[in-house]
Design a protein around this nucleic acid. Sequence first.
DNA 1: TTGAAAGCGGTACCAA
DNA 2: TTGGTACCGCTTTCAA
Lengths: 354, 354
Amino acid sequence: MGIEWETRGYDMPARLKDIAQDLNLSVVTISKVLRDHPDISQQTRERVLKRMKELNYRPNLAARALVTGRSYIAGLVVPDLVHPFFGQVAKGLSNGLRKKGYSLVLSSSEDDPELERQEIEQLLARRVDVLIVASTQSSVETFHRLQEQKIPYVLIDRKFDGLAANFVGVDDAAVGELATAHLIDAGCRRIAHIGGPNVSTALGRVAGFRRALHARGIAVPPEYIEMREHGDDAGDASGYTAMQRLLTLNPPPDGVFCYNDPTAMGAMKAVLEAGLRVPEDVAIAGCGNVAYADFLRVPLTSVDQQSGAIGERTARMALALLEGGAPSRPKTVLLEPKLVVRASTLRPRLKPRK
Amino acid sequence: MGIEWETRGYDMPARLKDIAQDLNLSVVTISKVLRDHPDISQQTRERVLKRMKELNYRPNLAARALVTGRSYIAGLVVPDLVHPFFGQVAKGLSNGLRKKGYSLVLSSSEDDPELERQEIEQLLARRVDVLIVASTQSSVETFHRLQEQKIPYVLIDRKFDGLAANFVGVDDAAVGELATAHLIDAGCRRIAHIGGPNVSTALGRVAGFRRALHARGIAVPPEYIEMREHGDDAGDASGYTAMQRLLTLNPPPDGVFCYNDPTAMGAMKAVLEAGLRVPEDVAIAGCGNVAYADFLRVPLTSVDQQSGAIGERTARMALALLEGGAPSRPKTVLLEPKLVVRASTLRPRLKPRK
DNA sequence: TTGAAAGCGGTACCAA
DNA sequence: TTGGTACCGCTTTCAA
């Protein structure tokens, strides 16, 4: 045991220096063993590894990051961790990055653009190697700054028009089209939409909604479209009130496409409370395909956003940015949404005839 | 502009040294301004701050951590991020820590004890200041090691008998008692339990279940208790099959207390598919009070586990561990569970008489 | 195959 | 009020 070790206390983490002194070697040699450097004799290597085990040695990653300039940390900023979509993305991402030794630092922006900016600052101060953001910004300025500073980043879920950035998400217009076309096929003719806040996902979905109706020559009265200001959290409450309003119209809609599943759940509640039936009087389709969609009052038809796949693809893209040699052009990965049909849109005329 | 700056490239982050050279000051002076050290002249301070803004200076937290020995990072390990309970905990925790400048590094153990150990190692290598773990270990060894190394840690949700550790969670026996007593009050007399895996939460809940029945002199046939091996994910599937088995018994139960809400949802599905009614034939109570409990086929009575509060209290405890002076005795915070009654247990005899 | 010296970007201590 | 020097734990370069 080196003298150093004696005086450091058994609760302080061991350092390369401690091992070096114990073994009468230099710090450099130990460092090389640590990193599997070739030019170390087998015998020395074994002695060092043995001592490392004994001392329970763990390299100080912060120190390493300081000299190598790589932290092996990815930063993730999401609007709301409680939303199952982002939970799933975080899980897929975390799994993908772990394999390559990266850790994930998590920030929640609470759907607040200013807070999101602060969190990004904090992550940059930590010198994360890459940033992954489901942004709630309305301006693109933050990301221009990142570009200037050549900080690799990937946008997920929400993107910006006119910003050439790495992006992983679903094709939101396709999401809207898929759900809406399905409602039409189910026999609905007065189809309404309860939309989300002013971000790309909500805008894309309402655009797809319009496109599908237009393609089939079905008109959409403006009052059939309700864009809500809520973020991702209070979706059920806002879906509820939006649907109540839609039911006062004359004629009321016989089908509704909702921005997300919580919104759809709120809408469903309003319909049932009004004494109407789902799907016979009003068919309902949501987005997100939450895990429990099958267990709802009426099992909910929903467009799957591939949350797990988004996490994995984002991990792949982030790693490519880091390990890949030349900085490449920004890439966009658009996953195909999938419609999952359940009872909330299975109207009589579509049910199998007996 | 210092010569250094010219040659560094505009995309490299500015350092104290750059600012010092630009202003003909020493690095120490800049560092003091950065940390609001008192003995700096007003004029100097302003010059420095101005230059910091211009260069968009961000202190390198890794470098600071190296010298101060404090990383301002907390590590969180959970079994499954997708489970809404842990999402909520992570959110509360993140918010509580952010206020004091801490970041949160997130690890998912996927309910795998070995992976959990590896993740903890990784976090220790990052020199996190405190560790927060919802552990899936069966042995207590990992935590003894942490104690030896004097690494502050807080267990959440799941605890260990005989391990004196900081803990934040709910009183699981109370959870079980609360739900079971309610089922009895609702008029159930043949009450079954679908339990979870071999961790403290599941064991505590089944103990409370037994205690409540015993206190009212109601017997529990052993076959009325189904302990499932699943983790937190496939709860719905295992609740479904467990309930199917329970329904084959003679007599079948008229009330079921389930380990968690997904399990309860699966159980509910099995009951309804068997052509029975909830709650008239079988009343069902769950645990966790998931956000959408109100929107299920039959709105689900559930015991609220206070997930948000757990996150916040854990943040407080973690901060106390770090900022507090003397190392204190391990503390246990047991939050009171709350029963949220919904239709799944509102049996006729409890309904208001007309 | 091994190691001495320099330095990553900061902070602490003490002298000027 | 300001700054020189040492050092945090590790990697890099280059010489022995």
